[in-house]
């Protein structure tokens, strides 16, 4: 019996280690290509494990005018979208969780069902609206819609607020606080962990955002880095093949901040998905 259990443990770890290695291969390969010299890139001969260590590729790319501009754009787009989402979703979620009004449940169900609508049926008229407003080739079509909240985040925050004891609100009402006062002074400080979770989700989504920047932005100087990486893979006007070491150096610059955000935000994310996730399917 004990021997069988030992073998069982060894087998489990063998499978897990093997799978982990497979999952890590693309990262290792990316690092390997990012450290390759320009001459290896021309020959397109890469090895899984790095054989060359041109760390200056990372240093040089920060001085590449395009890449540093795209990186700055990514930071600005991500921060403004995230701030707008967190603020609007918190407010709407508070109303759905706490205020009693006719039609509340109806609107909440409507809000939830918008999650299931594929974006394609809204995309073309939205494009037309933003075109009429003269917003094409600006960041406005990316940022402004975040001011109107996002169903999934509203739902997660509502679940979180609904679990806070109501006595707090009642005590605050007796102290003469209005609805907005309760939100700002009582609820907001208590939902900081949930807001952090939403912020982490939003940062990740906005940082990696591809489709809308692709359709709304034409000027390369306005691109976020995720779109910029694709530009780096385009053939240059002189017909030279793309510099893949540069492509993957830029890719690593795109990935590393998200890994850091993940490690910082992990504990918040995990809890809120769990509470929203299990309640969401019931």
């Amino acid at each position: 019996m004990r021997k069988a259990a030992l073998w069982n443990r060894i087998l489990t770890h063998a499978v897990l280690i093997f799978t982990s290695l497979i999952f890590m291969i693309p990262f290792v390969f990316m690092i390997s290509i990012s450290l390759a010299s320009d001459s290896s890139v021309v020959l397109a001969q890469y090895t899984l494990l790095p054989t060359e260590f041109h760390f200056e590729n990372y240093w040089n790319i920060l001085f590449d005018t395009k890449v540093s501009l795209w990186l700055r754009n990514s930071v600005m787009i991500t921060l403004s979208c995230t701030l707008a989402t967190v603020a609007s979703c918190a407010l709407v979620a508070y109303a759905f969780a706490r205020l009693r009004a006719r039609g509340r449940n109806f609107w909440f169900v409507v809000c939830l069902s918008t999650m299931m609508i594929p974006s394609q049926v809204r995309m073309i008229p939205q494009f037309v609206i933003f075109k009429e407003l003269g917003w094409i080739d600006t960041w406005l079509p990316l940022i402004v819609p975040n001011l109107f909240g996002s169903a999934y985040y509203i739902f997660m925050l509502r679940q979180f607020i609904a679990r806070l004891p109501r006595d707090l609100d009642e005590a605050a009402t007796l102290d003469g606080l209005g609805y907005f006062g309760i939100f700002a002074r009582i609820i907001l400080p208590l939902i900081v962990p949930a807001l952090a979770a939403v912020a982490v989700f939003a940062i990740m989504a906005n940082w990696n955002w591809f489709f809308e920047p692709l359709i709304y932005l034409n000027t390369e100087d306005l691109f976020p880095l995720a779109l910029g990486v694709k530009i780096l893979t385009a053939t240059t006007s002189s017909g030279a093949p793309p510099m893949w070491n540069k492509v993957f150096t830029a890719s690593m610059i795109l990935i590393v901040p998200m890994i850091l955000v993940y490690f910082v935000g992990q504990k918040y994310m995990y809890e809120i998905t769990l509470s929203a996730g299990s309640a969401g399917v019931k």
Binding site: T19, S20, F23, P26, F27, F29, M30, M204, W207, N208, F210, A226, L227, V229, K230, T233, V247, F248, S251, L254, I255, M258, I259, Y262
Partner: peptide, 15 residues
């Protein structure tokens, strides 16, 4: 197992 989901799809397509 989770970290690959942090990689932008552009990058995973390229690698």
């Amino acid at each position: 197992f989770y970290i690959p989901t942090l990689v932008p799809v552009v990058v995973s397509a390229l690698i």
